[in-house]
Each structure stands twice: as structure tokens, then as C-alpha cells.
Write a protein that binds this DNA or RNA. Structure first.
Length: 271
DNA sequence: ATGCGGACCTGTTAGC
DNA sequence: TGCTAACAGGTCCGCA
């Protein structure tokens, strides 16, 4: 479910209800996520006040005076605020009772996500340390991408989805940004000119910011932290539209698999 | 070093 | 209608 816009939408949705609250209790109902949830997590967070919730790539960082709680939503995870007595469901693996009386719940059917406790600087955690720049920050430029792709013969789609190069660009927005930029997903990264990288970088920024503005993409059942569905799905030009007419030229969109991920593009508009 | 396939899971959908 | 196979938002690991 979550790419960067969904994670950011979640963050913005829960911040007003979680930051400045004390965690009264923390329950682990199922610790078997991608990595085992540390058994001492409740002891670490109980009685602590959430000072801030930050995002790095698709990771959320709940900052406390004593350390940080790192959360990743994996492929199917969500964080929701529920009020009071909403019944806990099958895949609600963790919950935090806040001093306000609200309850934050972590749900993740596929359990590809993670919840860690990190002492010290969370940005130096092994999972975060070698991540590339944030796509929406000024340091993500065409110069940077051009430089990083010299000598790389991997398809450009694989490169933009590589979190060591740039974080937060998942399968949906990689497809969308490449379509908007008019670049074929299979084109080798090292044969793309600086000028075309200029276009691509702008398209990545545009696609991601637009998706955030619209509250993330609704596929299946995505809902942000406030329970409101996202509205970006109706804006998708290629993702999920293989075989259907290109919105620009009308030719049938091609569909191939790249890194085991469905890749959709227009062989007429993208070169 | 880079690039790729496999693995981790469950739920939903497509196809026979 | 019912069963099975394929596929789904991510990303780490290990082997070429």
C-alpha cells in the first residue's frame, strides 16, 4: 500500500493527535513482522511523551527524549487512530494507548513492515544510514542523478526505485514519473542525458507532491491516519492501465515485468 | 561494485 | 459456484 506519499499522508494525519501525547500503554499482539518486534518496546515507550514524528524515506520515526520508535509499513501496513472501543481485528499487531484516550493501531496483513526501538541517532541506524536523498528535497537534482548513473547499465526504472540512489519512489510513482517524463522504463540509466534527467527529476517531484496533496493513492483499501481515503488513484496515467489506451496518444499501453514488478509504459510517447 | 532472483507473508482477483 | 494460480504498495540478502 504505502509509497512515500502514503507514508507522508499517514504522518500528517496522525501528528495532530499523537505528538505531545504520553504513551500510557503499548501492546504487542503479534511480534512477528519482517523483524521481530523487540519485547522491551512497551517498557521503553510507556510513560514517554511523543515529541515529534519524522519521516525518512518510507520510515516513520516517533521521537522521544529517551530514543526513537522506528516504523515501516511494508507492503500492506497502516497506522490508524481509533477512538475508544473499536474492536481490534485480525492483523492489528500493535497498539498504543495515548494520554488523550485515543488509540493508535498498527495493522499489517502481510507483515512485511517493522517496528523497532532505536537509541541514539535513528538516522544512523543501519537501515537508514545508507539511504539516498529525499526526492522532494533540493539536493535531489538532475546533476546528482546523472552523476550517480554513470557506468550504470540497469534500466532507469530500477535505478529510481533503488533506495540507495533516491528514497521513496515505489512501483506506482516510478511508472507514473517515467511516463510523465517520456522516458522508457527499460532505457539504460547511463545513456540518458543530463537534459532528460532534468525533466525526470522534475516529474518525480511533481508526481510525488501532487500525490501527497491529494492524500495518497487509493488502491484496494488505503486510508490515511485520519481514516480518509486518498484520491490520487483517479489521476494515475499508466499504473494499472496495461493494454488500455495511452491518455496522450491513444495507443495501447505496453506491460512488462521488471524486477518482478509490473511495468507499464507507452512505446510511442516514451523513448 | 552492480544487478538480479528469491525470500518474507496474507489477501484478493483472474481464469479455468 | 468453486478451486488454483498469479499478483499486490517493499526491501533485504546472497549469489553471479
Amino acid at each position: 500500500m504505502p509509497e512515500l506519499p502514503e507514508v507522508e499522508t499517514t504522518r500528517r494525519g496522525i501528528v495532530p493527535h499523537v505528538v505531545a501525547n504520553k504513551i500510557d500503554q503499548c501492546f504487542i499482539h503479534n511480534s512477528r513482522l519482517r523483524y521481530e518486534v523487540p519485547a522491551d518496546l512497551p517498557a521503553r515507550v510507556q510513560g514517554e511523551v511523543v515529541k515529534d514524528i519524522q519521516r525518512r524515506g518510507k520510515y516513520l520515526l516517533f521521537r522521544f527524549d529517551s530514543g526513537s520508535m522506528m516504523v515501516h509499513l511494508g507492503m500492506s501496513g497502516s497506522l490508524r487512530l481509533v477512538t475508544g472501543e473499536a474492536p481490534r481485528e485480525k492483523h492489528d499487531h500493535l497498539e498504543w494507548l495515548l494520554s488523550s484516550g485515543a488509540v493508535l493501531r498498527y495493522r499489517d496483513p502481510r507483515r512485511f513492515g517493522l517496528v523497532f526501538w532505536v537509541e541514539g541517532d535513528p538516522f544512523e541506524h543501519p537501515l537508514l544510514r545508507s539511504l539516498g536523498p529525499e526526492p522532494l528535497e533540493p539536493e535531489f537534482t538532475h546533476h546528482y542523478l546523472h552523476k550517480m548513473t554513470r557506468g550504470r547499465k540497469a534500466p532507469i526504472k530500477n535505478v529510481v526505485m533503488n533506495s540507495r540512489i533516491v528514497v521513496g519512489v515505489g512501483n506506482i510513482y516510478a511508472n507514473e514519473a517515467l511516463f510523465m517524463a517520456g522516458i522508457r522504463p527499460l532505457r539504460m540509466a547511463n545513456q540518458i542525458s543530463l537534459a532528460r534527467y532534468d525533466v525526470l527529476v522534475q516529474c518525480i517531484k511533481t508526481v510525488l507532491s501532487r500525490a501527497i496533496e491529494q492524500g495518497g493513492t487509493t488502491l484496494r483499501d488505503f486510508v490515511g491516519g485520519d481514516g480518509q481515503p486518498g484520491y490520487f488513484a483517479q489521476t494515475l496515467a499508466v499504473y494499472g492501465r496495461g493494454g488500455q489506451p495511452c491518455l496522450r496518444c491513444g495507443n495501447a499501453l505496453k506491460e512488462v515485468r521488471l524486477l518482478q514488478r509490473t511495468t507499464v509504459y507507452c512505446s510511442h510517447c516514451q523513448t
